[in-house]
């Protein structure tokens, strides 16, 4: 596990980027790491692009605004275009290829595309492309213990929507295997 991982998740409002970021943050909290989660806010959120910065660290976190992410999760084209150049050399980019059709290359970062939105629809997990992408990230980085990730989902999904938590966990598995 890296000493510090800085992640940007970005997409259209309603694609669940803030939620997916919150799951990562909770995973960090459960493992008693330093954690910060910072959303974009305001008109940007309404219909435009939404993004959030998440940092998990073993030391006190300075700026919670992630400027040069280790990881970019992009759920739409504008987000991919906006953040691709910011990713740290050696970093990871995971894009939903059902939404991002033109993936500008960079040879110093690892760029992975999976059709998360299509996969979600086919698996009866509509609306959980965000979590499928999160599962993919987990498969690549193991940023926390496997059990922690499920526990984080339980924390983020209200208790009265337990069925939704199970679907989220399914989406994680789907992403890990993708």
């Amino acid at each position: 596990m890296k000493e510090e991982i800085q992640i940007v998740l970005a997409g259209f409002g309603g694609q669940g980027v803030l939620f997916a970021g919150k799951v990562i943050a909770y995973a960090g909290l459960i493992e008693e790491r330093e954690v910060s989660w910072l959303p974009s806010y305001g008109p940007e959120m309404r219909g435009g692009t939404a993004n959030c910065s998440v940092t998990l660290s073993d030391r006190t976190i300075g700026s919670p605004l992630v400027v040069e992410p280790d990881v970019l999760i992009a759920l739409n084209q504008p987000s991919y275009d906006r953040f691709i150049d910011a990713v740290k050399p050696g970093g990871i980019v995971i894009a939903d290829t059902a939404m991002v059709t033109s993936m500008r290359e960079r040879d110093d970062v690892q760029i992975i595309g999976i059709p998360a939105t299509t996969m979600a629809e086919e698996a009866g997990l509509k609306g959980l492309a965000n979590i499928i992408l999160l599962g993919k990230l987990y498969g690549m980085t193991e940023f926390c213990d496997r059990d922690t990730l499920d526990a984080a989902i339980d924390k983020c999904v209200p208790a009265r929507k337990a069925a939704l938590a199970d679907k989220n966990k399914e989406a994680i598995k789907l992403g890990m295997e993708a």
């Binding site: 919150k22 943050a25 909290l29 954690v35 910060s36 989660w37 910072l38 959303p39 806010y41 976190i61 919670p64 605004l65």
Partner: peptide, 10 residues
């Protein structure tokens, strides 16, 4: 400020 208000931390 808006950053401290909007951000989540433990």
């Amino acid at each position: 400020d808006g950053m401290l208000g909007q951000m989540m931390e433990p």
